[in-house]
Design a protein around this nucleic acid. Sequence first.
DNA 1: CATAACCGGGG
DNA 2: GTGTACGGTTATG
Length: 782
Amino acid sequence: MDVQVDQWLFGWDPLPGIVSVWAGRDGRAVVWQRVQDQVVCTRDRFRPWIMATTLADLGHLGADLVPVTAASPDVGLVQYRELDGPTDGYRYLLSARPGYALDRAILQGASRRLGRVVTRLRALDDYYGVGPVEQYLMQTGRVYFRGLEYDDLHRLQFDLETTALDPREGRIFMVAVRDNRGLATILEAPEPEDEPRLISDLCSLIRERDPDVIENHNLHGFDLPFVVERARRLWVPLYLARVGGPPELEQYADSRGKAANGERRMRWSIPGRELIDTLDAVRRYDFSARELPSHGLKAVARHFGLAATDRVELPGAQIYATYRSDPARVRQYALQDVEEVDGLSRRLLGAPFALAGMAPRRYERVASAGPAMGILEPLLVRAYLRAGAALPCEKQPVLAPHAGGATLLFATGIAQQVVKADVASLYPSLMRCYQIGPVCDRLGVLLGILDRLIDLRLLHKAAARTAVPGSLIAGHHDGMQAAMKILINSAYGYMGAPHLALFADQHAADEVTRRGRELLQGVVNALRGRGVALIEADTDGVYVAVPEHWAEREERALVAAIATELPAGIQLEYEGRYQAMFSHEVKNYALLTYDGKLITRGVAFRSRGAVPFAERWLQTALHALLHGDVVGVRAAFLATIAAVRSGTMPLAELAEQVALTKTPEAYAATRARRPEPVYEALLAAGRTTWRAGERIRIYRDADHRWFSLPTGDDASATAAYDTDHYLQNVLMGYATRLRKAFAPDDFAQIVQMDGQLGLFDRPIAQIEPHWIRCGNVELPIP
DNA sequence: CATAACCGGGG
DNA sequence: GTGTACGGTTATG
């Protein structure tokens, strides 16, 4: 059984070192392997295949349609094999060589059956097919990269520098090229007439270095389309393919590409080499991490600590002009770009590399595909094909959107000594624990591989922890565990995608969330039973306040005690502890860590056009509040009012940042119809030129007009400003985020504008915030 | 003022 | 051959 599950996960053919595969509908395949750091190219043949629910469209073939026999695999035009499974599934495996003979026969029969001309197999839901490379890999059980580590790959990065973003308006004047075998060079075309030679030199260099992988940031969105268009216009052939396969660059429409302004987004493919766009990797990373302010190369490199200390910063529009005056600077800039791409690749492509060792797909597709349809489903299809079992073809009704995770708010106010506990990998754990898989998955492949993935991931996680940080072996295990995490986390979402997934089962998906809500409620009840103060619970985690004399040991013991009451396979984990928490609304709260750091979560605390003085007050106030220091909150508020009223607050403190999106011309066109404060501010400050995308700071002057803050280093510049606006609108706007911490009367007093005590007011020092208190709790450990 | 459509990146 | 999302703009009624 384990052997079978491992084959489901990793394929079965042992062929080592595959670094690229090309296959065509004609049944030819080419495999490139890296063996002892040499590239070996092997030609192969396969029978193109497709799954069908019926043979009805092939009746016209007569004797050319034959059942498959082991003795004569190439007899007849089209062969079929009847698969095990339900009668409404894809129960015939059809194959033919060449594959387009099969397509033609099906289209001809279907046209006759339906009484209209059918030109695309995709339009027929009686058939299920995959691309030629996938067909080849699923049939052979081969996968990429057996026995290779990430550093064994020969990876090359190239980056174009151009005079414009559009290849119809600009040209290439420089290319930076590097690889992980020591190359780092610059190709240049100072004059327009040098560009054809630059392009052919680039091709020669790539062919000569012969990399397995070509990488860049926005490779498919910029560099490839740009160089393709320039080569076309200049009549320069683009020979980038590897020896052994077809020489042409292949182009296909990216399904994500929307028909915006009529143009479809395209992707490219080069036989023998894998094209990796680090922008895809960054997007996938940030999809879950949600921590990157921008997905641009420089910003991401800085975020990951990859940027050189002497990083050359150049606005895109100035690159060519800089090149004319200071070419060395642009050379350094371009080389730093490709260095950063390499760094990003090493940081982010470990998981796709490991996934390519499991899924029957090209590495470049694994790296850009979604995990559910792009990886999980091919694994399932390969398993069914291997077993000779029919794929399900159920017309599933799309049910009303089902209830998701539970969100429960128990208390608002201030809590001290807070513990967060959460269930590890909630949905996959529930699937495994209660064996909730798609009913149509008769072989139990999804639950089988989920089971194995969860166990294997723990092993790889442990191995990564004990390995030397940064070592080859640590990287290997980390890539594996990250790859497995991606697959594990996509299992639930896959089941719940009725119109997309072959093995979808919405009832099963609903059952998982129902169990999730039930489990969370169970954890909540258990905590309540122990007497701790519940604050909020969301899907898989709970915040509670515990007795203030507890140490971390007691907290952990509490979570462990609750955990033992849960079903086997469901792990409740102690996620962390906090000095204090301000619970504002569901999913909106502030936490104070034990090292004094403030963490804010939720839309209420994420300010948009952050105004520095108010932003700082809110931080100070939250700090004070979380320490229970109401006097401190009030004092900071009064000090802020005084500072604003003094009229001497630096403009930099009052200004909000806004981005200019319209050019001066664009604004001139709409100004009469709809004046906008931002541009009025610019014009009022005497500026007539700016560029779209520029960020400026604006403030409101004493006459209620908006002004832009002169750019420059004078952070202490002052001018008359609209005191009332900054107090009543801005400061009070920020202050309302604290109102749930107090009784209404007390809150009104704390944010009162003047310092006078009202008739019924009590001294601030006597005001208590709205405490969320934990009563006496019996220690969970002796 | 509300809602819909669009964008995210690259020189 | 391929299927994201989500928060922030900008266009449109």
